[in-house]
Design a binder for these strands. Structure first.
Lengths: 202, 202
DNA sequence: CTTCATGTTGACCGACCGGTCATCTATGAA
DNA sequence: TTCATAGATGACCGGTCGGTCAACATGAAG
């Protein structure tokens, strides 16, 4: 067992929770250490800086995400268009659960961090961008398959995929501002109506 | 002339710029004072706390916004559906101008603040929510008029309006993460395809 | 038994945080 | 001329920030 990395893991998951629930700037290293029951010197043994911690947190969350409900939602056995609904549902239930427990909607960690730090830290911005790109590719794939199966007419699937991801982030943003996860369900159904036509192949 | 309020105005516009370009937590009162050429004591003469400053900044920006290009975009003389494109265009040009000057996309001040502080400060959250509500009403009105004019079939105009606002915020978020204002134009066109049907009137 | 790497401890650093306050100045009305 | 008020000044507060460091514990390899 990775007892050797237990401390690191504890730091990581504590930081993830705190960053997600509040913000990057608002959470101090001391607070993370206290909650994770780790000494400050130990922290800096594993993470050279707060920025490095943020990088690790993003990686960690992106992994859990990709192998968790995103993998479920974009299951190849599901009809492509149903995957979109599944993704919305997953976001809804996640945020609802969080709100039921903590009383407030944390929103999407990636979206939160992106808006908070992408003007200040280009490295973190690039990393978050990569996460979004990867997510966008899932939508892209689903759309291409839907076209192949004749479920929808041909369209600019790459741009539409990005638009769908943007819409997902947007409704989570709005839901968080309203502190009401139901917004995700109420508006989320519209994701399938989004559509960007193929450019004229002049 | 309001020389009497010149100091206050300088604080306000400086804070607005800094909050918009970076974040709430990352900008200190000292920095605002230095840039606005105001003494700290003077600052606290006008604003009881940083939170009050944020409130004022949001009000200030919301005013400029409502009377500025939002008023233009949602001009009653424009065909309803064109207003949507106009709004996307306005967002695009604004962000592009900002990037050309400062090298980075600040995104939407309201969206930025909403994700950063709405889990920590319910008063500010409520204020931002009100701003979004007001913006949503413009979309709502445009949609209702489009239905009236027979330009689009009847739909749940209120929910669709919210979805459109969410989409706008979402593409700005994605564009900011990519640091590329073109994203707004490329994806923005899809806003008109968003559609939420009326609930079954069983 | 020694060596060395991995990890732990907690005191410590300078800088900065949001916020306070006594003091001073400028203005305009009585 | 007096007086009240609005505003400006900058030193000061306790606390926290991200980060450093030398000393120490542990355990496996030689």
């Amino acid at each position: 067992m990775n007892v050797e990395h237990d401390t690191r893991t504890r730091i990581l998951s504590t930081a993830r929770e705190l960053f997600h629930g509040r913000s990057y700037a608002d959470v101090g290293i001391k607070e993370i250490c206290d909650l994770a029951k780790v000494q400050k010197g130990s922290f800096y043994h594993f993470f050279p800086s707060k920025q490095d911690l943020a990088m690790a947190v993003i990686d960690d969350m992106a992994d859990d995400w990709a192998h968790g409900f995103v993998a479920e939602a974009f299951d190849q056995n599901l009809p492509p268009l149903e995957r979109l609904d599944y993704m919305i549902d997953a976001a809804y239930y996640w945020q609802k659960a969080a709100k039921d427990i903590e009383g407030r909607m944390p929103g999407c960690l990636f979206g939160n961090l992106a808006l908070e730090i992408s003007t200040r830290d280009d490295v973190l911005r690039a990393k978050l961008n990569a996460v979004f790109d990867k997510a966008s590719r899932r939508f892209h794939e689903a759309l291409d398959q839907a076209v192949e199966l004749g479920e929808i007419p041909p369209l600019d699937s790459e741009a539409t995929a990005s638009a769908m991801l943007a819409f997902l982030e947007g409704i989570i943003l709005l839901a968080k501002t309203r502190n009401d996860p139901e917004v995700i369900r109420d508006l989320g159904s519209a994701i399938k109506t989004l559509r960007i036509e193929l450019a004229h192949p002049n």
